[in-house]
Amino acid sequence: MNALLETRSLARNFGAVTAAADIDVTINAGEIVGVIGSNGAGKTTFINMVTGYLAPSSGEILFKGKSIVGKNPRQVMRAGICRSFQVAQLFPELTVLDNVLIAYGIMKHKILPLMSPLATKANIQQAEQLLEEYGITSYMAETVVTLPQGVRKLLDIALAMLRKPEILLLDEPTSGVAIDDKFELMDTVMRAVRKSGAAVLFVEHDMEVIARYSTRLIAFYDGRVLADGAVSEVMGDEKVKELVTGHHLDIDYEREVEHA
């Protein structure tokens, strides 16, 4: 197997708080890896470090055998690692179409043109195609703030897929999405992923979603990898049951409070 992404003893602390202690993760081409872990286990910190948003305190990140530590999100993304966000990162006051147009505008040019128009027929058509692929064409003219969570998440992932990454990191793609819509959302995303052939790592709290889509599962606990392997194996692991999945209900409760 040829490892696409490999992290070695990745650690990060904020002052006295350790967000990631020692994370060794390997992702191979074509894999769909689920990640579980309670709040503060270091999942988002891991994604933030891999994509260059946070610098690791120590450790190594190899992408196709080359270190990408010290690169900023732009460089990491151009290299082929894209991500989505727990809270969809969009341009909230703009329309869906504008969101996509801006993304295309930035993607196509190294230095952004000052005078040539962005909203050309060709660009709009291309945007429409992308939205169609994710089944959200009907929202095209709407402002992002008015969109339901699921649509925002899809748009967020669509923008991440724009550059045709080799690895896609999804940070809780179904959080905030109504239960009934979760599978539909994941189906749409996975269809796009299969089409592009990208490997996926996705953080998820819903075990049903994990069971349905991942080919491998990693459990994070306290900034470390607690278990890594086949889904059934990791879910059956005693430590995982005790430290991760057992707390599941509590976690959801806390999240509710946070959002209230």
Partner: peptide
């Protein structure tokens, strides 16, 4: 507009 609305997204789009 994009910078005003969300800098993180702009960076993650590659600008």
């Amino acid at each position: 507009e994009a910078v005003r609305e969300n800098e993180i997204r702009v960076e993650y789009l590659g600008a």
